[in-house]
Amino acid sequence: MYQSIIYKEWIKTGKLVILASVIFVGVIMYSFISVKQILRLNGSVNIWEAVIMKDLPLLSTLKWLPVLVAILLALAQFVPEMQNKRLKLTLHLPLPETLIMITMLGFGIAVLLFIYAVTYVVLLPGLGIWFAPEIVQLSFYASLPWFISGLLAYTLTTWICLEPVWRQRIINIAVSIACLSLFFVGTRSGGYNSFIPYLFGFTILSMLFPFYSVSRFKEGVQ
């Protein structure tokens, strides 16, 4: 039965997931090409020194991609549920409502984690060909907030989508934008290191938010 819900989520999002994967693959390839290019044009020595002394970012093309894909995925999953209040059909399925929601959210988070993990698994060892582990690690820490913000953007977008009242949705959007902006403060690579555990913990707890919206939906709040 749960596979069936996943099947439904896949029908809604399949095209987007494939498109997002293609874009990620493209951006990964582009990142490699552009890193290779700056190495060739400026020489490895200059680039290493620029990274060490001036904190030259190596993966900045990726910055907005995780959050963008996460928002689109959440919209693709939950806008159709809210159109004509189809969520009523979904919640009417003979399964506990909480588990239905967990399955739907789990699908989205699993897709995002998969895309993000594959990105890192390809990108970081790739950078390791040209750069010392310290520099790879620096790039990892610099990009980690972008990926965590993707997961958070997913749960927040879900929370906003499932909220039945438009006025409340706008309030939630404003608070969400403020919260997500915290992940994009310009600081040195690694400046988030001590903040990341907090952000990650909050992201996990924020998975509760969509359930609040669903229970409001169930009460028929208008």
């Binding site: 608070v175 509760l208 938010f209 609040y212 229970s215 169930k218």
Partner: peptide
């Protein structure tokens, strides 16, 4: 769902 909602209320309040 009810229990989740009660806890989530306080958590949302803290978040806001």
């Amino acid at each position: 769902m009810k229990i989740i909602k009660n806890y989530t209320y306080w958590f949302l309040l803290l978040f806001f």
